[in-house]
Structures are given as C-alpha cells and as structure tokens.
C-alpha cells in the first residue's frame, strides 16, 4: 500500500515546479507518505493542513455546504493544493510560483480516487 501511495506522489512531483507532495491524515496531523519533501518539514505540512481543513469546514458548515474536498492556498511565493482522498487522508502538494497549478489541481483530483 505504501509503495503504491509513493508511486502516486511521484506522479505529482513530476509536474515542473512542484516542491513536494504528501499523503496526510488530517485527523491526527500525521504524514502517511511523502515524496521530495527534503526542503519541507512533513510534520509541519500535515499539522498546518489539518488546521486549515478544520477551519475551512467551520466556514462551510455556516453556509451550509458540504465539507471541504479541495483547498487551494495561493501565496506570493508559492502555492499549496490539497485534495481529499479517502477520509481522513488528503493529498497535498506545494509548488513554486509559475508552476502549472491548473494541471496540479486536476492531477491531484484524479489521483485522489486511487488512494483507497
């Protein structure tokens, strides 16, 4: 299972400009699998994503709307895209400015179904 997940993550980091990708459990903020996260602290990514998903869910509840299934945080110096795979697992990738974010969103969405 772990090898298959790492294979999926390698597809993600093959997109130019992607700094790293991970499979994260947002219930406990832990990294389940990761790829090319050398310059990133996987534990930080997992914990911050867990907090973001939790906060986003609080907003969607007020609308009311279904729970979040994708987050896209765009900053001046990079982007985070995260997609719900098999709850509580989220696929998350970080990319540099200028990366093909549209392609990254689509690929993460496609791969999310393959995580289970």
């Amino acid at each position: 299972m772990l090898a298959r997940w790492e294979g999926l993550l390698r597809e993600v980091i093959a997109i130019p400009g992607v700094r790293g990708a991970a499979l994260v459990s947002v219930d406990d903020g832990l990294v389940v699998a990761e790829a090319a996260m050398d310059q990133l602290d996987g534990a930080d990514v997992a914990a911050l994503l867990a907090a973001l998903v939790s906060r986003a869910a609080r907003v969607t509840r007020t609308l009311p709307a279904a729970p979040p299934r994708m987050l896209h945080l765009a900053g001046d110096a990079g982007t985070l895209v995260a997609v719900l795979a098999e709850s509580p697992l989220w696929l998350v990738a970080l990319a540099e400015p200028g990366a093909e974010v549209g392609r990254l969103r689509v690929l993460l969405g496609d791969l999310a179904g393959a995580v289970a």
Partner: peptide
Amino acid sequence: LGGVKHLVVET
C-alpha cells in the same frame, strides 16, 4: 508561500 493572495475551498 509568502503573503496570501487567495484561498479557494471547494465542496
């Protein structure tokens, strides 16, 4: 990631 430009949440 620098300063936030936007956050998109999809349900």
